[in-house]
Design a protein around this nucleic acid. Structure first.
Lengths: 221, 221
DNA sequence: GCGCGCTGAATGGCGGTTCATTCAGGAGGC
DNA sequence: GCCTCCTGAATGAACCGCCATTCAGCGCGC
């Protein structure tokens, strides 16, 4: 009646507590209280306090991977895939900010001294982006000069930073339109179109002035 | 003979130790040993262990700000300013990886429970980027639709993530060419030029195929 | 001999982990 | 149906090691 049920309750409680105090300032007994469970019970399900964190991380990452894989399943075009990825990431984050905060903040900390814990799931998450990029390059859509792996890391950093800001400070501002802006920068860049005629003075303003390549339709999930 | 000298030694030692073990797994006595100083001495210069971290953060941030302000002093063009900013950031990081690691990793952690410690310096760092962006918009160079503050955050995230990766794992790979790639993505995007004629089939290949707007000369520091 | 900068052994408490104990519910004998 | 015996999940008070912080004293320069 309780086995996996209780594990979940503890994990959820842990996420809340970690998000509020950070891993090291969280007491196991507080997690227990929050989960409605005795201190000792926790050690029936987890090896140690640190193990809780690892499992939170693993669970979340695996879920995120599944969600992305599902979301991208139908799409062909790398451009659309990239946009979708970004949107889904933000959506996942806004689903449970506390979780996002823990992953985002604690993940870094952890990966330092958790040598031993395999960060594979994270690598796979990056891999999704990297594959989109290299695929886009193969089709001649994306600039062939950039390293997919690096772009993946870059994009993840950007997206993660925005998510963190949102989760920590200004829960008020809309995270919803962050995704569009992020996508448009990564696809089109900051620069306004007429980049070829860079040093040519604005002789005649071509009709290109406002043509961000972004307005592809991208309807519902 | 030692007042500010010793403070520095302790700070430097702390950076090394924190970088290796993370803040919470670092022992004050280890910092002391590393600094060639007695445990108690540390408390002559710092209120607490946490205070050491705060000061590392403050010092570093202030230095980073100074460096960027100096580096950008002469430049007018927002495009060049942005590129310079990115390059200088990476250069700073590669100057002392340990420091970068601490700032990058611990900063997040910290800002959670260090409510009270003002994160102003970090805000100012973001502010530099934001100003470049809004300036670029004012001059019609950058897309007017994006929020400078958000772009700043995004860029910082990207750059920080790359720096972290470099500092932690693959110290081997060249951080040097990361800056160029980052700049080119943020300025030009991933997409290969002919964005206007999106759905038009490749009727005639225009000469635009390989024209990343990046090849501005950007010589030495 | 005084004070200042420094020392490092001692301390105090904090909190992760353990483990003797409890108790709900299931199986089986009558 | 009811009582008894088991089982193992759950409990939570106590334990114990760890480490940030303190402070009584030491030496050195004046």
């Amino acid at each position: 009646m309780s086995q996996p049920d209780k594990r979940r309750k503890i994990l959820d409680a842990a996420v809340r507590v970690f998000a509020q105090n950070g891993f090291y300032n969280s007491k196991v007994s507080q997690i227990a209280r929050e989960a409605g469970v005795a201190d000792g019970t926790i050690y029936l399900y987890f090896k140690s306090k640190e193990d809780i964190l690892v499992q939170v991380f693993m669970d979340t990452m695996e879920q995120a991977l599944r969600i992305q894989e599902d979301a991208l399943a139908g799409l062909e075009c790398p451009v659309e895939r990239l946009r979708r990825f970004i949107r889904v990431h933000f959506e996942s984050v806004s689903q449970s900010p506390a979780l996002a905060e823990v992953i985002t903040v604690e993940l870094r900390q952890s990966s330092k001294f958790m040598r031993g814990t395999d960060m594979k799931p994270f690598g796979r998450y990056l891999g999704i982006i990297a594959r989109i990029v290299s695929d886009g390059q193969a089709r001649g859509l994306f600039s062939p000069t950039c390293q997919p792996r690096r772009v993946a890391r870059m994009l993840f950093g950007a997206v993660d930073e925005l998510a963190l800001e949102w989760a920590m400070d200004d829960r008020g501002t809309a995270l919803e339109d962050a995704w569009g802006e992020t996508a448009s920068i990564f696809l089109d860049g900051l620069l306004v179109r007429p980049s070829v005629a860079r040093d040519a003075a604005p002789t005649l303003s071509p009709n290109t002035t406002t043509t961000p390549a972004t307005p592809q339709k991208e309807d519902l999930a």
